Simulated assay, not measured.
Amino acid sequence: MNTFICTAYILSQPKLIKVKHQNFCYVLLSLQNFLDNIPNIKIKAFAKGKIAKQVFDLYKQKNSVVIESSIYIKRIKTVNNNKKKSKVIFVRVYKIHNLSI
């Protein structure tokens, strides 16, 4: 398992979904990119169980947070028949903390 720790800005309101008595929470995050001239990196984050309930209850859109998670990149084909593949970055949140400035 790889560990990914970063500061992020919450772009969307967290959404809570229950599947077979299990909580899942999905949220869109923005990471600052200091290496390239690309303004920000958008990632999709999800949490499961008690962490999902915590994310949904405590955090709102436009909060800055510190997350500890695992990261993976998924390649998906475009809708049209071009042979291009785009990459989507996902993280699974294990711990989350509010970043007070």
Rank of each mutant, 00 (worst) to 15 (best):
I101S: 06
N80G: 13
V27Q: 06
A52R: 04
Q54C: 09
K77N: 12
K95L: 11
Q13S: 15
S69T: 02
N82V: 04
V55N: 01
C25G: 10
V91A: 07
Y26A: 06
L29Q: 03
K50E: 15
E68N: 11
K95D: 15
K20H: 08
Q22L: 09
H21A: 15
Q32Y: 10
F24Q: 04
T7S: 06
Q32M: 12
S86N: 13
D36A: 11
K85W: 08
L16T: 07
T7M: 07
V91D: 04
V88C: 02
I73N: 11
K87E: 06
H97M: 07
K60C: 15
D57E: 14
D36H: 07
I101W: 04
S30T: 06
I76C: 04
N98T: 10
L16M: 08
I71G: 01
I96R: 01
Q54M: 13
I43E: 02
K42Y: 15
S69Y: 01
V79D: 04
Y9S: 10
K77Q: 09
K50A: 12
V93G: 01
C6M: 11
L16I: 13
Q61E: 11
Q32S: 09
E68P: 00
L16S: 08
L16A: 03
K77A: 14
V79E: 09
G49V: 13
R92T: 05
L31A: 03
I5T: 10
N2L: 06
F4G: 01
S86G: 06
Q61R: 15
V55M: 06
K44R: 13
I96G: 01
V79A: 14
I101Y: 08
M1S: 04
L35T: 12
I101A: 09
D57F: 11
F56M: 05
I71T: 02
N2S: 14
R92V: 00
K87M: 14
T3F: 13
K44V: 15
L28D: 14
I67H: 03
I76T: 12
I51G: 03
I89S: 01
S64W: 08
M1P: 02
